[in-house]
Design a protein around this nucleic acid. Structure first.
Length: 420
RNA sequence: GCGAUCGUAGCUCAGUUGGUUAGAGCGCCGGUUUGUGGUACCGGAGGUCGGGGGUUCGAACCCCCUCGAUCGCCCCA
């Protein structure tokens, strides 16, 4: 562009500047979420983007990858370790405990905003990314799981991206079920340890459930015949899962059982789910969540059942943009003043029309040809041309940009003409 | 953190085995038209070839480093 001696700073890796149509798609996702969440009476929450590091390290577990290498942590001037939130749930749980929101239990809340993880960027995966999030805290009932899932389903439908998206559903059972299953898996995989991929050999020690969703063909051969959670579900856990699936069926939400869908951390119980699309490659999960009875205790609170989900706005926006359901809003009218006197008068005209709810474009500069050209690009149905002649008569020339026909008209008659 | 592919104009890309002043389309600006857009024609601006180093008489092209992007792995709480 120019010979600069001052180098322009570049954007941070993994961040994005979202503009125009993409930003419209992004906003559409958030607006749709806001609308749907109100239908289900989820209350809005605004949260800080940073917390004490312990909020995340305790709730997520010190040894998880997220905590050990993916958090943006720093010390403030008082020497306290703070962290940009890598997820919503831990902060919401903290707020629930520190603000006494127990009084509202069961509390249905929703929020959205930026999250930060120090990861290698990929399609639909960024270091600063954005999610919408819904949680029910203080409800042990399967109805909470159902309500969240039905809401998620409705959201995807209203976004027009439900085609090609499948709800994958699993249960991890209650604590005894989960523990029995976990031990059975360890016994099973230890027998075939030599045949496992290197990653899964390590998972066997750290996070055995994760072997089940390994992509390595060597592992896949073994996971086929691995013990299933169903064999280890207690009656209570079975009953819980049955109520969730029955609720989904009653609400007309399609789902498939995904026995390999797991959550690594111990406090995950019962329901685990992901809405997965076939259109985003390796980043196919479009919305995911589950029940996390036990998290609140990890933060020093009383035993509190909770369930929730989150969805990446960028990924949803990509699907929305692919579906071509989004356009940048067109103007209703474009005003084309000619001359200084007309320009001043047109500021008044523009304000009047906008106060009346019309979308109005009026350029800052340019000759008439240029302004007409801009009027055309704005998508306006009408151009209002005001020169000295019109001004003197209290009129404007109203040009229909689609047909090219135009007529002189009194200013006060314009709103009705446009509305017609 | 690991692997692969790729960085040329605002955008999408071309650029021969290394060989003069690096091209096209779209977009942008101006003109044909100083009160009329969308079409057409004419003209113009715009490039440290991502950055640095090296090889060579000569590098957009070859080599090394680096930054970034894309795709995948790990991970996805």
């Amino acid at each position: 562009m120019s010979k600069q001696t001052i180098p322009t700073p570049k954007a941070i890796r993994g961040t994005q500047d979202i503009f125009g149509l993409e930003a419209e798609a992004f906003g559409h996702v958030v607006e749709t979420f806001e609308r749907v969440r109100k239908l289900y009476r989820f209350r809005r929450v605004e949260m800080p983007v940073f917390e004490k590091t312990t909020v995340f390290s305790r709730s997520l577990g010190e040894t998880t990858d997220v905590v050990s290498k993916e958090m943006y942590s720093f010390e403030d001037r008082g020497g306290e370790s703070l962290t940009l939130r890598p997820e919503f749930t831990a902060g919401l749980a903290r707020a629930y405990l520190t603000n006494g929101w127990q009084q509202h239990a069961p509390l249905k809340i929703a929020t959205h905003g930026a999250l930060f993880r120090y990861e290698r960027p990929q399609k639909g995966r960024y270091r600063q990314f954005h999610q919408i999030d819904a949680e029910v805290i203080g409800a042990a009932e399967p109805q909470a799981d159902v309500e969240l899932l039905v809401m998620a389903d409705q959201l995807l439908r209203e976004l027009g991206i439900a085609d090609g998206v499948t709800l994958n559903l699993n249960t991890l059972g209650d604590a005894p079920s989960r523990e029995a299953w976990r031990e059975a898996l360890i016994r099973y995989f230890r027998r075939y340890e030599a045949d496992l991929s290197d990653e899964s050999k390590e998972r066997l020690e750290k996070n055995p459930l994760r072997i089940l969703d390994s992509k390595d063909p060597r592992d896949k051969a073994l996971t086929q015949t691995a013990p299933q959670i169903d064999e280890y579900l207690t009656d209570e856990a079975q009953d819980f899962f049955g109520k969730v699936t029955a609720g989904l069926d009653a609400a007309g939400v399609a789902w498939v059982r995904a026995p390999a869908l797991v959550r690594g951390l111990d406090y995950y119980r019962h329901t685990a789910f992901e809405f997965i699309t076939d259109r985003l490659g390796a980043q196919g999960t479009v919305l995911g969540g589950g029940r996390y009875d036990g998290l609140l205790e990890a933060l020093g609170g009383p035993a509190t059942p909770a369930v929730g989900w989150a969805a990446g706005i960028e990924r949803l926006a990509m699907l929305v943009a692919d579906a071509r359901t989004i356009t940048e809003p067109a103007a209703d009218v474009a005003i084309v003043p000619m001359g200084a006197a007309a320009e001043a008068a047109c500021l008044g005209l523009a304000a009047t029309l906008r106060r009346g709810g019309l979308t109005v474009d009026m350029g800052y500069r340019g000759n008439m040809k240029k302004r007409m050209s801009r009027a055309n690009e704005s998508g306006a149905r009408f151009a209002l041309i005001v020169g000295d002649e019109e001004l003197a008569a209290g009129e404007a020339t109203v040009k229909n940009l689609a047909t090219g026909t135009q007529e002189r008209m009194a200013l006060h008659a314009i709103p009705a003409h446009i509305a017609a």
